[in-house]
Design a protein around this nucleic acid. Structure first.
Length: 651
DNA sequence: CTAGGGTTAG
């Protein structure tokens, strides 16, 4: 009956053959579908997101303008369409018509308006509509809560939840999803726990765990994002029915907290249980591969992506680029990039970063030029990527130029990450005073990262006074920051202040600040192996130690002299006597040499920065065994070959 | 009418 109410001028927009996303007629067909409430707006949301929002919005407008008497049933799907296409202006026009037609007071229409405005990025308008509504139901409140979460106002979302309860409106499962998302977005573990308790106490738990996995999944996600993997696991194990999203959030949670291997195990387990993966799963798996340099495992995932036909998915493509770059194969990253049918700004950023971490600054800048030529608008992350590319390659002038053009040409204002990159860039280049001025010039309270970058630069260039200033600032903000003690102690040692160095170590111990353990990963025969400092538990430890002894002899003959003057900054115990076996990196290298075919390059990943001693000894190892060794540390790649390293900025 | 998980940087 709704269809029959559409006047003849709209009939050209009406389609009866469903929706075919690839045909040029999709626009008009689905617009009519949206106008027909019985077909629901889902048809439109699922099929048309790829189509230019402007042209669809035009069609919608044309349609709604020519319909003589639209009612509340016609407005809702039209608002939905505007929301899913982020067509704010079209949405406003529809709003005007709603006011004229007098359906403004309808709860359904009001809720849809709130939803439309918040999805189109105008939370102010959403609030205005909400405040003027004569009656609101749970859906209205939900739309408001979710709207605030999506625009980053988690605190406001929680306040709305409390108001909703005060007004006696019963929360629905969707409310809980919104509240849990709000907690996750603010890393508010306490608040999240309270919500969990509330769910149990209120007896909504039966709904949560039996009827709808979505709330359970949101709980897992909230715990994982707030850093409590243990709680996430507990909820996961209690879920009576797990779906693919339950597994996905677990996989992501583990990757994010440095447990890439565990994430890969979860994925295997998921397959054993016969759960069908989704593109999201692949993204999680590729992230996990990138985090532990599992190149072979990553390639297998890529094969499977192609078989599943997901290679045109932008998220998947972006993750593939990232995985290949972080696993050391820029060639494969570029191949994926070139084959992608559609790219977004993230695709370009990922490629720029790929070049950056490999120390190919010039290529990174070329990639940016190409991006501009193709008319892709850079975002704030693009500039973080570019500035770090300049920093890694010592391109100071270029970095300064990007920094200024960012705000003048691209209208992107500098955030604290950009400042940190600039401090790093200037500091590495030895322009310490300019770097310090950069920190002091930050328009907001300087963050720990900026002071750390300055301290790192002082360590490289041996500026004790400034280093002490920076360290003091960090400790005021984060007294538990172990890296400050390590860097400062190394700075003292490097400048011949042994007493001061020992003193700072003593202070660290007195305040019981624990150093992070150094960890190294290496993939051999499709399997990832992990080593920690002073590892004694590996089944092949005897062979590994024998190999290190052999290497040590060869290196000695080749002229290697260990630098015992330097505190090894990734060892747990204060151990100044040089010992090859301490470093997780050396254990991994020895393991790789024993277990892989001669001539194949070794690719290693560690969680801390490569220290000076590791750097020198790895150079020697690459020389005496004639193997290329690639080490990916916390920030970048170091390519060692025949006793040389491609990276020259620190040593 | 509202509804869970996804890509890049530090």
């Amino acid at each position: 009956m709704i269809v029959s109410s559409i006047p003849s001028s709209c009939s050209s927009l009406r389609g009866s053959n469903g929706v075919s996303p690839s045909s040029p007629n999709t626009l008009s067909t689905s617009t009519a579908a949206a106008t027909n409430s019985s077909m629901s707006a889902n048809v439109l949301t699922t099929h048309n997101l790829r189509i230019s929002s402007r042209s669809l919005a035009r069609n919608l407008l044309r349609c709604s303008a020519s319909c003589t008497s639209p009612n509340n049933f016609t407005f809702v799907p039209v608002l939905n369409a505007c929301a899913s296409l982020r067509a704010l202006e079209a949405g406003r026009k529809v709003h005007e018509e709603i006011i004229q037609s007098g359906c403004e007071a309808d709860v359904f229409v009001g809720s849809s308006l709130v939803d439309m405005y918040s999805k189109c990025g105008s939370i102010e308008d959403a609030c205005k509509v909400f405040n003027n509504m004569p009656s609101r139901d749970a859906v209205t409140w939900n739309a408001m809560i979710l709207g605030h979460v999506k625009c980053g106002q988690g605190q406001k979302a929680l306040e709305l939840f409390h108001q909703m309860q005060q007004k006696g409106v019963q929360p629905t499962p969707v409310t809980l999803i919104g509240v849990l998302n709000a907690c996750a977005s603010m890393f508010a573990l306490q608040e999240g726990r309270c919500t969990h308790e509330q769910i149990i106490e209120s007896g909504w738990e039966s709904d949560v765990f039996v009827g709808i996995a979505v709330v359970g999944n949101s709980l897992i996600d909230m715990y994982a994002k707030c850093g409590s993997i243990e709680d996430a696991k507990r909820v996961f194990n209690k879920l009576p029915s797990r779906d693919v999203v339950s597994w996905n959030v677990m996989i992501f949670g583990h990757v994010k907290y440095g447990q890439g291997q565990k994430a890969l195990e979860l994925f295997r387990q998921m397959q054993e249980e016969g759960v069908q993966p989704t593109p999201s799963t692949v993204v999680g798996v590729l992230n996990a591969c990138a985090s532990v340099v599992a190149l072979e495992e990553g390639r297998r995932a890529h094969d499977w992506v192609i078989k599943s036909g997901w290679d045109s998915n932008v998220f998947v493509g972006n993750s593939l680029i990232d995985m290949y770059a972080k696993c050391g194969s820029l060639e494969d990253a570029l191949k994926v990039f070139n084959k992608m049918p559609s790219r977004d700004v993230v695709t370009w950023n990922a490629m720029i970063v790929g070049y950056a971490i490999h120390g190919h600054g010039k290529e990174a800048l070329k990639q940016f030029e190409q991006m501009r030529e193709e008319g892709v608008q850079p975002d704030d992350t693009t500039f973080v990527c570019l500035l770090s590319a300049c920093s890694h390659s010592g391109l100071v002038d270029e970095g300064l130029r990007f920094y200024s053009s960012m705000s003048t040409v691209y209208m992107i204002s500098a955030n604290f990450q950009h400042y940190t990159c600039m401090v790093d860039l200037l500091g590495h280049a030895g322009r310490l005073h300019e770097a310090e001025n950069m920190v002091l010039a930050m328009p907001y309270k300087p963050q720990v990262a900026a002071w750390m970058a300055l301290l790192g630069a002082c360590r490289i260039h041996g500026n004790v006074e400034m280093g002490e200033r920076a360290a003091k600032q960090v400790l005021e903000l984060e007294p538990e920051n172990a890296a400050v003690y390590v860097l400062l102690s190394n700075l003292y040692t490097a400048t011949g202040n042994r007493d001061l160095s020992e003193n700072i170590e003593r202070q660290r111990k007195e305040r019981s600040v624990k150093k992070h353990r150094g960890r190294t990963w290496i993939e051999v025969d499709n399997e990832v192996h992990t080593f920690v400092v002073d590892d004694q538990h590996h089944p092949q430890m005897i062979e590994i130690h024998a190999e290190l002894k052999r290497l040590s002899g060869l290196m000695h003959d080749a002229g290697y002299v260990p630098d015992t003057n330097f505190v090894l900054h990734d060892v747990e115990e204060e151990e100044k006597v040089f010992n090859l076996c301490h470093h997780s990196e050396k254990l991994a290298i020895a393991f790789g040499l024993i277990n892989s075919a001669p001539g194949t390059p070794l690719c290693i990943r560690k969680n801390l920065r490569v220290c000076r001693d590791c750097h020198t000894s790895t150079k020697f190892i690459s020389k005496v065994v004639g193997r290329a060794i690639m080490v990916r540390d916390a920030n970048r790649f170091h390519h060692f070959q025949d006793g040389e390293c491609s990276c020259r900025d620190y040593w």
